[in-house]
Design a binder for these strands. Structure first.
Length: 204
DNA sequence: ACCCAGGGTCATA
DNA sequence: TATGACCATGGG
């Protein structure tokens, strides 16, 4: 029952090794990365992060007070800068002003609150659950949906795949963090080197 | 000249 | 509930 997903986890862990996502030296840097990487590759997000590091040293209050035009200039390399300026300020406000209260909520209620924040959609909410709030969650992003489409032959929506995987697995928060990193890193590789599509056919 | 990358919002049916 | 247009940059 719950064995397939855990065997998949072990196979990816053995092949890829420890991932230790999310890469960042501070919580503020991690939160900025979550916004900046939206629909962009990590190299582009990293350029914007370096600009932010030089000008703000990832002081959340400094970033929140920075004029929008200046902030737009700093994060231009990662695209969608008009929207992401607002999203950055929103996610930092959430962390600075509401983290304590949010932390007391159960995971489903917490996710519901995060989804009310402009700039935080389903995927970023689940990534926050994983790496900021240390909750076990499954991120049903594009890599995950592509992988599970090959393993099950079914095409799931985000929420469908998330719920099914969470119901049929029992990962600790740390394991869930690694599982998400495994799926994304493996998805970037070419041609399914482990031949997972053959070895892990199962139903959800 | 395309297509994609560690998405989200808004309008529409 | 679930598609589609739009947002903007950088690399292949």
């Amino acid at each position: 029952m719950k064995k397939n997903l855990h065997q998949l986890y072990l196979t990816l862990a053995d092949y890829l090794g420890p991932q230790n996502w999310w890469p960042a030296d501070s919580v503020t840097e991690m939160l900025c990365g979550m916004i900046l990487v939206q629909n962009t590759n990590w190299d582009s997000a990293a350029r914007s992060l370096e600009n932010l590091r030089q000008v703000t040293a990832f002081d959340a209050s400094v970033i929140r007070r920075l004029p929008s035009e200046q902030l737009e200039h700093l994060i231009r390399p990662s695209g969608f800068y008009h929207a992401k300026v607002k999203y950055l300020k929103n996610i930092l406000t959430m962390y600075q002003d509401h983290f304590q209260e949010l932390s007391r909520l159960q995971t489903p209620a917490l996710r519901h609150e995060l989804l009310k924040i402009p700039g935080i959609g389903a995927e970023t909410a689940d990534v926050l659950l994983l790496y900021l709030f240390d909750r076990s969650a499954f991120v049903a992003d594009a890599y995950a949906r592509k992988l599970f489409r090959k393993l099950t032959g079914q095409n799931f929506t985000y929420e469908q795949l998330k719920l099914k995987v969470e119901l049929q697995s029992d990962f600790s928060p740390i394991e869930a963090q690694e599982f998400h990193a495994f799926i994304d890193e493996y998805g970037k590789l070419k041609d399914d080197p482990l031949n997972l599509a053959e070895r892990f056919r199962f139903e959800l």
